[in-house]
Simulated scan of single mutants.
Amino acid sequence: MECRLGCGACCIAPSISSSIPGMVNGKPAGVRCIQLNENNLCQLFGKPERPAVCHNFKACSDICGNTNEQALTIITELEQIT
């Protein structure tokens, strides 16, 4: 599955413990990453300063569902149970 451009669910729903430029302590679950622009695109995509956890995330239908809304719901639920 290809990532849906403009979704941004993986940059909002999960907590990220790794340092992110502009968020040195990572980000809590449900908080929009500071590197997510107004079009829900990662400003660090393809750059070496992008955290490994973000780089290693691969979109799949089990996690991302069929819509951006489903992705946000699924990732939020996974975050809550882990």
Rank of each mutant, 00 (worst) to 15 (best):
I12V: 14
T76L: 12
E77Q: 11
T76G: 11
Q70E: 14
L44D: 03
Q43R: 15
V31A: 11
I75W: 02
V24A: 08
C42P: 02
L72I: 07
Q35E: 09
I63T: 11
R4I: 04
I16S: 05
L44K: 04
E77I: 03
G8I: 01
L5T: 02
E69W: 09
A9I: 01
I12M: 13
R32G: 06
L78S: 09
P21S: 14
A13P: 07
V53Y: 03
I63V: 12
C7L: 13
A13F: 07
V24P: 06
L44W: 00
R4W: 03
K27S: 11
N66P: 00
C10F: 08
I63K: 15
P28G: 15
S17M: 11
A71F: 01
N37Y: 05
L44N: 05
A71S: 14
E69T: 12
F45V: 05
P51N: 10
Q35Y: 04
I34H: 04
L36N: 09
P51G: 13
M23V: 02
H55A: 15
M23A: 15
N39F: 08
C42M: 07
K27L: 13
E79C: 08
V53P: 01
S15R: 14
P14D: 05
S18K: 06
S61D: 06
S18N: 10
E2L: 04
I34C: 12
Q43L: 14
P21G: 14
C3F: 02
S18A: 15
C7H: 03
C11T: 03
L5P: 02
Q43D: 08
A59N: 08
C54S: 13
E69K: 14
E77Y: 03
N68M: 05
L36W: 09
F57L: 15
M23I: 02
N37H: 09
A29F: 01
L78F: 03
V53K: 10
C64S: 12
H55T: 05
P28W: 01
F57C: 15
I63W: 02
A13L: 08
I12F: 08
V53L: 12
